[in-house]
Nucleic acid binder design. Structure first.
Lengths: 346, 346
DNA sequence: TGTTAGCACTCTTAATTCATGAGTGCTAAG
DNA sequence: CTTAGCACTCATGAATTAAGAGTGCTAACA
């Protein structure tokens, strides 16, 4: 593809992203002074169409970028649009003031993401990954009831109400807690050996039944519970896009986005790629979502993969801006989380 | 309002709810055999219109219920439509299998609510209300870091990462935890007196600085943190309604619903009313949301107000069904939560 | 050989017109 | 008080038309 074709393709995509209208040869000649006439541009456009980078909605309409067109643009033509100093400041100040717990950081990130891009934002909360027990505790909550607390050394916290025999007293629970805590501490789920379990049973023979319960819960709770929490916001922004003036489209999109699992799938898969990933149209493997793209990037905590953040918008989205924003936000998010977990065993 | 007018109003509203089309005298005479001719119906309709219960979108269209019309219907004419046995079963089975923690129950309730009504569901998680400390604990999480855990006797759990002097050792934290736990146990936020604080300081004079921190956090965390969590789901259902085929409307609605605070306001205010409250159109005090109604009901935990659940749909919603569903769901939700907190000091 | 002006052709979009029909209100008769 | 009849209104949708944007092709030009 020669330089002039690139110029023209760039012009088409830039214009289409800005206006959402099919763009014709005349427009390009007028707005983007490339020093060539509409007729020449038409010839080049015919070539570009043949190559599959642009297409015509119908004869006698201008051209519209195809998915491969956007792909080429993102890969070779696009210049990132750096954040304005005002935007940078907004981000810094928000992160400075509102970083209390993980949930809040996730939510803040999502809000900023959608606010800055004016598209929908998706943020996955950090996957806990393998981590070791720090503290286990059973707390009596009235006759026959107890709350089980498990704190992991990565700062994650699990809790669950459990039924216990009424005969168990608070001191009993205290004893059990101490033993469990002491024995499990430092172990990960996987490193718990039968020998360890046996030791625990030996020390707490009297409380065999409640132990069964507790150990089951630990096993079950820790493998199932961290069902990836997802922040999703700014969906209404997408409705500003003319391509979503069709209510049917909106409906299918909304109903899909309400399924956490689906959203989670959309976001996952790019964790190993180092930087920002752009998925255009069908590259998001989801038949039902049409005319959409995502810009995704993983964030890290203490060097380890944490989760991903992403922006969902129309294929005609402002990639130049969004890519910058997403990248900037991963940096901020990573930093915020790292500060929060600072001092954890690396 | 005489009986015949009531019959006609009922017919109009029933038909309009079913079809979303303005309903004319002819239709009523044909479909609802009231034994009177279209002409008579027309006369009555003219009266009903004068009374403000119905209105005409334009001359030569049928009549449409006004907000007062719906109000009259809900108050005097409506017959609740009880749940089918299949629906009852669906609810029972879901509650039987998925009641682990509060969050899950809230989510389940919302899902069922929107699934059964085919409108949007809003569920407020239980306000914790005044409750007493059960357990306080500081857990070292690496140099200079600790996690503070506070368990209340109503089963709510608060946690927070805190920075502590690096000089503090794990046994120190252990000591502090024990004292705090012992002293605070049984007290509510409000019943903590200066004398108690002094006692604590006396016993832990060595750790004055960390105590300051911890007590501050407790105060702050417990008053601020329970920022009403809200479940919102099934919004896409509303898009099935013909009155929401206008994308602008959808957009404003969506953007409002993304603000948790706003949703919270919508839901609140009906806690003292004993049963189901129906808010029609402007009765929801929200200018921006138009052509919508809500059916709201409070749920209780152990006799105390817990929170509210609600269904948001078009003013033309199927009140007869929704009211039943909402009421049924409050019962189920209350029961589920009560079971979960069973044994708490009444 | 590449570029450009000119031109006929296509096809969408918006505006206009027109007919249809649903529904009303009024009047007068039962 | 009820109802049949009738003239009138007005939204809706179909059909027609005009305008305009954009193309591809051809032929002339550098």
């Amino acid at each position: 593809m020669d330089a002039r074709k690139q110029d023209i393709l760039l012009a088409i995509i830039t214009d289409y992203i800005a206006t959402a209208e099919p763009v014709g040869s005349r427009t390009i000649a007028r707005k983007y002074r490339l020093g060539i006439s509409p007729a020449t541009i038409r010839n080049e456009m015919a070539d570009l169409e043949e190559m599959g980078y642009i297409e015509q909605p119908h004869t006698s309409a201008g051209r519209v970028p195809s998915e491969s067109g956007y792909r080429y643009y993102v890969d070779y033509l696009m210049k990132r649009e750096e954040l304005s100093s005002g935007e940078e400041k907004l981000i810094r100040e928000n992160y400075r003031s509102k970083v209390k717990d993980v949930g809040q950081v996730i939510q803040l990130t999502g809000q900023l993401l959608s606010q800055l891009t004016r598209y929908a934002a998706v943020v996955m909360s950090p996957r806990v990954g393998p981590s070791a027990f720090k503290h286990v505790r059973l707390i009596g909550m009235g006759p026959g009831r107890a709350m089980m607390l498990v704190v992991m050394d990565n700062g994650s916290l699990h809790h669950r109400m459990v039924e216990v025999p009424e005969s168990i007293t608070d001191p009993d629970l205290e004893t059990i807690s101490s033993v469990l805590s002491a024995k499990l501490q430092g172990h990960t789920m996987e490193s718990i050996k039968m020998t360890l379990i046996k030791e625990i049973y030996a020390e707490l023979a009297r409380h065999r039944n409640i132990l069964d319960l507790a150990l089951d819960l630990i096993r079950e709770g820790l493998t199932v519970e961290p069902g990836d929490k997802i922040y999703l916001g700014g969906v209404f922004n997408i409705l500003n896009q003319p391509e979503f003036h069709n209510v049917e489209k909106v409906k299918t999109l909304l109903s899909l986005l309400e399924q956490e699992e689906m959203v989670c799938n959309l976001l996952s898969g790019g964790e190993d790629a180092p930087g920002v990933t752009v998925r255009i149209g069908n590259e998001m493997h989801c038949r039902e979502i049409v005319d959409c793209s995502m810009v995704i990037a993983p964030y890290r905590i203490s060097g380890r993969a944490g989760g991903s953040i992403g922006v969902l918008g129309p294929t005609r989205m402002d990639y130049a801006k969004v890519v910058s924003v997403v990248e900037c936000m991963t940096r901020n998010l990573s930093r915020a989380l790292e500060e929060m977990f600072a001092g954890r065993g690396t």
